[in-house]
Each structure stands twice: as C-alpha cells, then as structure tokens.
Design a protein around this nucleic acid. Sequence first.
DNA 1: TTTTGAGTTGTTCGA
DNA 2: GTCGAACAACTCAAA
Length: 485
Amino acid sequence: MPASSAPTLVWFRRDLRLFDNPALAAAADRGAPVLALYILDDADAGDWKPGGASRWWLHGSLKALGEALSKIGTPLILRRGEAAEVVDAMIEESGADAVYWNRRYEPWARERDSRIKDALKKRDLDVRSFNGGLLYEPWEVTTKQDTPFKVFSPFWREIQSKGDPADPLPAPEALAAPEAIPTSEALEDWSLLPSKPDWAGGLRDAWTPGEAGAVARLEDFLDGTVADYKAHRNLPGLAGTSGLSPHLHFGEISPRRIWHAARAASEARSNEAMDRGTSTFLSEVAWREFSYNLLFNNPTLPETSLRQEFEDFPWREDPDGLAAWRRGRTGYPIVDAGMRELWHTGWMHNRVRMIVASFLIKDLLVHWREGEAWFWDTLVDADLANNAASWQWVAGCGADAAPYFRIFNPVLQGEKFDGDAAYVRRWVPEIADLPDSVIHKPWEAKPDVLRKAGVTLGKTYPHPIVDHAVARKRALEALETIKKG
DNA sequence: TTTTGAGTTGTTCGA
DNA sequence: GTCGAACAACTCAAA
C-alpha cells in the first residue's frame, strides 16, 4: 500500500467490464482505494452523441457494471457534464492523486482526453491511459514503410504475423472504496430508457447488456456456431453470427479475450492450427481493428468521403424514398426485412446491412451519410469507426472500396442467402404465405398466387419504389460522372 | 525509383 | 442450368 490512502480514479468509458480491463487492473495493482467513475459525456460528443438504441444499451451496461463493482467493494459513481469538469470535481471530492483510463479513438474524445491528460499532469497527478479496446493500438500496425494500411488484406496479414496479442488480465477480486465517496447521480434520472412510447420491448427480448451477457454470448458462439461460421455467417435466417458487436462496442468484453478464447476453443476441437470458422471470425474482429485504424488516421471519416472525387457525386434528395427505406416499406422484401429487424431489435444481420446500404446508396442514390445517421440512431452496436468505414465501403468511396460495378441485386441476394425465406417471413409477415419462388419478388407473382397468400400489392405490401434494373443503370451513369480522366 | 501482383462480400451476358 | 469473361482504372504494399 502507498503511504497515503489517496484513491486512484478509474474513469470507465468504453470498457464497461472487470475482466481484462488494463486501467482497472493497474489501479488494483497500485494498492490504493479505487474510485470508479462513469461520465455521461454528451456535452463533449458534439454531433456524435449516442443514439436511442445505444442509450438503451448503456443503461443496462452501467447497471451491470455498478452491481459488479459493488460486489468487489467499490461503487460506480455516475455523473453528467463536461468530462474535464467532472474529473476535477471528483479529484476535489475524493482526494484522488491518480487518474487511469482506457483509450478511446473518436476524434472528439482523443482531443478532449489529451487536453485533460495535459492539465492533470501539470498538477503532478499520476495520469495514465491504456489500450483496453483493441488488439493493437492503431500506431502499432503499419506498413513496412511505417505508413497506415489502406487495404485490408495486408493489414490482416500483418496482424497475424504478430502472433497472439497480449494475454488478457484477470479481474480484480477485491477493491477498497475511498474514504470520501463522492455522491452518485441515479441511473434512472439519466432517462436512457425510452418511456413514451416504450419501444424497447424487442431489444429486451434480444439482448442482455453487461459483461455477464457478453461472456455468455461468446461461450455459446464458441461452443457451436463458430464451427460453421464461414458459411452460416451469410445466412440471415440462421443465428450464424456471434452477436458480439454491441458487447464489443461498449467494452463489456475485450477483443483480446475474444481472440484468445477463440484460438483455445479451436485447438480444443482439433489439432489443426486454427479451423476455418475461427480464422474467418477473427478476421472479422480484425475488420473492426481496421476501421479504428482508418478513423484514427482519417478523423473526418464519419463526415467526408475518403475518395475525394465522391464529394462531387450527384446524390439525390429523396425524402420519400429515404422514409420508405427507414420504415422497411421499399417493396423489396429482403431490404424491408432488414430495416424492420433493425427497428425491432436494434441490430441487423451483416449480410443484410450490405444489401440495405447498397439499396439506399445505389438504387436510391441517397447520400451514404443519411444511412450512417439512421444506423447511428437505431443500432445497439452503433460505433463511429465501424459505421463510418462500412458505409463508405459500400458507397465505394472508402478504403479498399467495392468496385463501382458491385451493385447488389436485392432479389438475387434474397434468393441466394435467404433461399427458404425464413428471414423474410419472420420480419415481413404480411407476405409470409407467398411461395418461395416469388417471395423475394412479389410483383412477379401471378394474381391468383397473390390472392391465395392474402397479398394485395399497393395495399397490404408496397409495390417496389424503384425498378432495380433501371436504378442500376442510373447508378452506373452517376458513377461515370465522377470518374477521373 | 520502378515494377509487379493484388485488391471481403457482385451481376450480367453470352456461349 | 452452368460457366467464364467482362465490367475501369487506380492505388496500394512490397520487392
């Protein structure tokens, strides 16, 4: 124990867990009492305050973290406001002489955190930041020329060549609370949960925010699903993905833990170095790293097309089309199913995210930022780096972008990846009685087939809001206008 | 400095 | 129904 009992302030942010939490582990090692703090820092976040679905998740995650911390001896203090001011107040009220946190990578957070760090260092406090959110820091993964990667494949090869990332750190077993514990605001007073109306029923059914929920998901996934991940991850009718994205976003589980657990599970199944499902899954974790790397090196990624020429793209204003897309009433069943899954559960299957994004951008020619904004508000896993990088990728204006001619055909995609229409029938029940042969293209069904299924196009289910073949040609022509040369 | 091979996820058309 | 080619040109990363 240090001579004084001045506490260590641990500022929780996107690391709402006890296991493999470097800042918390370092505070525990230091021996002094631990003051655990979470700041609702909307004031600092500018245009990127968490959306509705994220706030719902945050409530559950904070509740779980508070309970877990109390169990090992120290409460979680909740405060609202500008982080710099709140941290100062906490130091004042508790007598803390050290402040630890795990890094964030949003441009606004980096700028804010470095200001806070400088100010505290000037006052001779022990201030430290750690890597709690990534396998490797963005500046640790670079090309041989020491430049940031702009293409995923070589980035992924570089990650693999590094061997395994650091071992996860154990969770502290017991922590001492400070003598002077600052008062906490009540989580309920933050109004993170929707009330009028309560739209979160579907979210409650689908998710368990918090570290325990995250670990349970990981174990379930590694227990079975991962074996067929390579093939099944593309089929939205199955639960073939890990469903870990929101847990990762809030830091309820660390990517290093996921990495090591996945490797161990793979080795336990076979003597091979790593099975196909596991390596495909880990490459998806690496895509997350790649997005963070891109955001770190391109702070305007959420607002500005990475490829300059796309700033001159002839986007359309289409309020009606955008509204139909948001509500899942485009007349294309696979698109509508995805948008309704999103609205209902706060999540959408990855394959379907690409389909709906391609539809908004290429079929409607609506700016990718409109899609980014809607996802930001409705996804429980809304993440600045992933969201921005992925929308730019689909638009073709990002790093490693899709070739211009890659325009998803929503009918073919539906038939290919939802062949038995299990997904469409679940989320678009009004057409569930259509046979497999036409359920992805109801407008081609014969009148008596529609009648038998109780479908009246334009009444019970919309006509397609655009003709895909026409829209595809229009998109290719629009892309022609920004070609160089 | 120059060269070389490669670049997550697709669609359409014609043989 | 199945298969291969075409669909652009450019930029990246390493040698």
